[in-house]
Design a protein around this nucleic acid. Structure first.
Length: 419
RNA sequence: GGUGGAGUCGCCUAGUGGCCGAGGGCGCACGCCUCGAAAGCGUGUGAUGGGGCAACUCAUCCGUGGGUUCAAAUCCCACCUCCACCGCCA
C-alpha cells in the first residue's frame, strides 16, 4: 500500500510511476477526491461525537422534566452520530479498497516499459562450449535416476515430479549450501508454515493481479504460499520491531497454479506446481533499503558463483515488477539446450509497501513509528538443478558436481544409472 | 469434533451501565539524592486517524464484528485465539 499522506503532497510522483508501469493514471485523482470526502465526513462525525459525549454528561446529572427534555435531544443526536459514523466508515472502506489496488511506487532508475524492456546489467561467466550434442536437463535427470516426471504425473498430474536418488540429494545439497551461506552472513534460519490466512496473502500483495496464481483451500479459508516471502513478511505483522535490519532465511516448498502458462515449459522441472526454495527476507530502515537490495543481489551472485554457472543480471522493467516491488533484479542462468538465459533468482525491494499493509513498524530517531522496508531474494530453488545438470554435463551423460556441493553429495561426478 | 474457562496499556492486574475521559503494580525514561551506584523519592510513559508551522488539540481503540441504550470495558448475539479435559487420527 502506498503512503496516502505522501500522495497528497506529491501526486505527480504516483502519476509518473503509473505511467512507467503502463497503468492507469486516473486512479490518482480518484484517490485524492475520495480522501478529501473521507476527511470531511470524518470531521463531521468527530464534532458530532464530541457534542454527544458532553451531552451525555448533562443527562446523567439532570432530574425530572429537565432530564426528559435532554433525553429527547440526546436521542436525536445519537441518530445523527450514527449516520455520520456510517458515512465516514463507508468512505474510508471505499478508499482502502481503492488503495489496495494501487501498485507500489517504482524506484527511480528502473527501466520503463514491459516484460521485454529489461536492461542487462552484467554477464558473468561464459556459456560452456560442448564438443558433443548437449542433452537437456530432463534427459540427463532420467539417465542419472534423478528426476521422474512420469510418475509425478501419474500420482499428482501435469507439472508434478519426483526427485529421486541423487536428484533428491542434489536438491538437499543445494538448499543446504544456501542455508549455510545465509546463516554465516547472519540470517536467522526459518522453516515457515506454507498455508497462510487471507490477510497474510493480501498483505504481501499476492491477491491482486496475480490472484489466479495462488492455490486456495476454500474449506479452511487458507492459501498455499508461492514463496516463503509470504509467511516471512507476515511474521512481524502488527508489530513494532527494533534493531533493524532483521534478516531471515526461509526454506519452504512453494506452490503455484501456473494458470495461463499452458504449453510453456511443459518439459521437465522448469515450470512446476510445487518446488522448494531458500529465500532471503530482510526488514530494514527505508533509508537503507536501496543498499540492502544491492546486498541481497550480491548474496545471490555468491551462490551462483559457488555452483559455477554462467549467468546475467537484469534490471526488470517497471511493467513487469508485480504489485509490491519498487525495483527488481533477476539473475538468469544460461541453459545450453535452450540457448538462452532463464531466471534462477529474483530480488525485490518492496520499500514500505508490504509493511504498510501488514502494519510492521519501527521507531525512528525521533521515536516516531514508521513502516519498515521489506526486501526479498532467492538463494536457491529446485530450478537451479536444470542449469547445474545442463551446464556441467559431460559427453557420456555424467554430470560434474561443482566444488561447493561436493561435501554435501560426497562425490565429484553423478553417473548415469541402468534403468 | 465435544465440554468448560479465559482474552483490559510492553508485562501483571483492578474494573458488573454515567464517579473509566481506564486505576494500581512491574518494567522503561528523565530528574532529585550520591564521589559513583543501588535503594528511596518525584515526574513521565501506547497505537491509529483528523486539524495546526508549532506547543498542542480532537476523535477512535479494553480479542474481532454486530446489536441494545441518551450513554457500553461493563448488557445481548456471532466469531476468533489461547488454556484445560474428553474423543478421533498421522
Amino acid at each position: 500500500m502506498i503512503d496516502l499522506r505522501a500522495l497528497r503532497n506529491d501526486p505527480d510522483r504516483l502519476r509518473a510511476s503509473q505511467r512507467a508501469r503502463g497503468e492507469d493514471e486516473a486512479v490518482v485523482d480518484e484517490l485524492l477526491g475520495l480522501d478529501e470526502r473521507r476527511r470531511s465526513a470524518l470531521s463531521t462525525f468527530e464534532s458530532l461525537r464530541a457534542e454527544q459525549k458532553s451531552f451525555g454528561k448533562s443527562v446523567s446529572k439532570a432530574q425530572g422534566e429537565e432530564r426528559q427534555k435532554l433525553l429527547d435531544r440526546a436521542k436525536e443526536l445519537a441518530q445523527q452520530v450514527k449516520e455520520a459514523d456510517a458515512e465516514a466508515q463507508r468512505l474510508d472502506q471505499e478508499l482502502q479498497a481503492l488503495l489496495l489496488t494501487v501498485p507500489n511506487l517504482v524506484e527511480e532508475g528502473a527501466p520503463e516499459g514491459g516484460e521485454e524492456d529489461y536492461v542487462v546489467l552484467e554477464e558473468v561467466g561464459t556459456p560452456p562450449a560442448f564438443d558433443f550434442e548437449p542433452k537437456d536437463h530432463l534427459e540427463l535427470g532420467e539417465r542419472l535416476g534423478a528426476i521422474d516426471m512420469e510418475r509425478g504425473a501419474k500420482v499428482s498430474g501435469a507439472r508434478f515430479f519426483f526427485l529421486t536418488g541423487v536428484g533428491a540429494q542434489l536438491q538437499m545439497a543445494l538448499l543446504n549450501l544456501a542455508m549455510e551461506q545465509a546463516i554465516e552472513a547472519g540470517f536467522t534460519p526459518m522453516i515457515p508454515p506454507v498455508l497462510v490466512k487471507p490477510e497474510s496473502m493480501e498483505g504481501t500483495g499476492f491477491l491482486g493481479a496475480h490472484a489466479s496464481e495462488v492455490y486456495r483451500l476454500p474449506e479452511d479459508d487458507l492459501y498455499l504460499v508461492g514463496t516463503s516471502e509470504v509467511p516471512l513478511a507476515a511474521y512481524h505483522r502488527d508489530e513494532i520491531i527494533g534493531a533493524l535490519p532483521r534478516r531471515y532465511v526461509g526454506w519452504s516448498s512453494c506452490f503455484r497454479r501456473e494458470a495461463g502458462s499452458y504449453g510453456k515449459d511443459t518439459r521437465g522441472i522448469i515450470r512446476v506446481h510445487q518446488f522448494d526454495k531458500v529465500e532471503m527476507f530482510s526488514y530494514c530502515d527505508p533509508e537503507d533499503a536501496h543498499e540492502e537490495h544491492l546486498r541481497l543481489l550480491n548474496w545471490e551472485k555468491q551462490m551462483l558463483a559457488k555452483v559455477e554457472l554462467p549467468y546475467r543480471v537484469i534490471d526488470v522493467a517497471a511493467g513487469d515488477l508485480g504489485t509490491s516491488a519498487a525495483r527488481k533484479y533477476d539473475c538468469e542462468a544460461w541453459v545450453p539446450t535452450q540457448s538462452r538465459y532463464r531466471e534462477l533468482t529474483s530480488t525485490s525491494n518492496c520499500t514500505e509497501f508490504q509493511a504498510r499493509r501488514l502494519s510492521v513498524r519501527f521507531r525512528d530517531d525521533e521515536g516516531r513509528t514508521r513502516p519498515v522496508a521489506t526486501l526479498n531474494g532467492t538463494l536457491a530453488t529446485t530450478r537451479w538443478i536444470v542449469a547445474i545438470l545442463e551446464n556441467h554435463q559431460q559427453a557420456d551423460g555424467s554430470v560434474r558436481v561443482p566444488e561447493a556441493l561436493r561435501k554435501y553429495l560426497g562425490r565429484e561426478v553423478l553417473e548415469p544409472v541402468a534403468r
